[in-house]
């Protein structure tokens, strides 16, 4: 445990010093929220529309950091031989993953805090109605997004391919998960896909807890679906993780 906390501190340093990474995964959702707020502020739909989008972007911010930033970082660090160097120390493979997930979790909590502050201060939305429920949703969201990030990282062939591949998942996911508009307006098949994937359930939980109310399928059901995705992500990640660049030795180190 001591080693994991120690390593997580350095993972923090590494994250914040990589400026372009910070911009694309941390700053970008904040910018998007501000721009959408400005665009929607004078449009139709009134305050409800603004609240809908802001809560959607908060859930999106969780995916941006815990899924996308994590998957890209893991793929890059593997390519650079950094994972191998760290795994060859007494920090076990599980310890390294735990440190990375812990670090990304901290960044994600910060991301959510910044988005909430921007929503309240810049967009003039009320404070979250049910803060404990919002926190619970974010924590469970971090777990599922990080597990899926690790799972996807096992399939990313190289560091260079990482941003393109994660974006190819993340961007469509955002559009079919109800971040910007309700998904019941989408074609049936696409709505079904969106409902099956985890981000939609995170969006529902964040929206309901922030705005007050109960999510469509009830708290327990959305949480259960996210936990199921977490378990699936961990299973894929553990089964196929590579520590070394290139080598397809299929070994779980």
């Amino acid at each position: 445990m001591g080693r994991i906390l120690h390593q997580a501190r350095y993972e923090q340093l590494v994250f914040w010093r990589n400026r372009s990474g910070v911009f694309f995964t941390f700053v970008f959702p904040v910018m998007l929220l501000v721009l959408l707020g400005l665009a929607l502020g004078r449009g139709d739909g009134g305050p409800e529309r603004l609240e809908f989008v802001a809560t959607g972007v908060i859930a999106m911010g969780v995916a941006s950091v815990a899924f996308q930033a994590l998957a890209i970082a893991v793929a890059y660090h593997r390519d650079m031989g950094i994972l191998k160097t760290l795994v060859a120390t007494p920090l076990s493979p599980g310890g390294l993953v735990a440190a990375k997930v812990l670090s990304v979790g901290i960044v994600t909590l910060l991301e959510v805090a910044v988005l909430v502050v921007v929503a309240v201060v810049v967009l003039g939305i009320a404070l979250p109605a049910q803060l404990p429920a919002l926190l619970a949703a974010v924590v469970v969201g971090i777990g599922s997004m990080a597990a899926l990030g690790m799972a996807v990282a096992t399939r990313i062939p190289s560091g260079e391919a990482a941003p393109a591949l994660t974006n190819a998942i993340y961007l469509p996911l955002v559009f079919i998960s109800g971040v910007f508009f309700p998904i019941d307006g989408l074609p049936r098949a696409i709505e079904a896909v969106g409902t099956a994937l985890p981000l939609h359930h995170l969006v529902e939980l964040v929206r309901a807890s922030y705005l007050g109310g109960t999510p469509a399928l009830g708290w327990g059901m959305h949480h259960a679906i996210l936990v199921a995705w977490t378990v699936a992500g961990i299973a894929v990640a553990v089964g196929g993780f590579r520590w070394e660049p290139r080598y397809a030795s299929g070994r779980d180190a």
Binding site: Y10, L13, V14, R17, N18, H77, M80, G81, I82, L83, K84, T85, A88
Partner: peptide, 12 residues
């Protein structure tokens, strides 16, 4: 261990 191609975080 010194691997054939070592890797360390470039930002540290």
């Amino acid at each position: 261990m010194v691997p054939q191609e070592g890797g360390h975080y470039p930002y540290l």
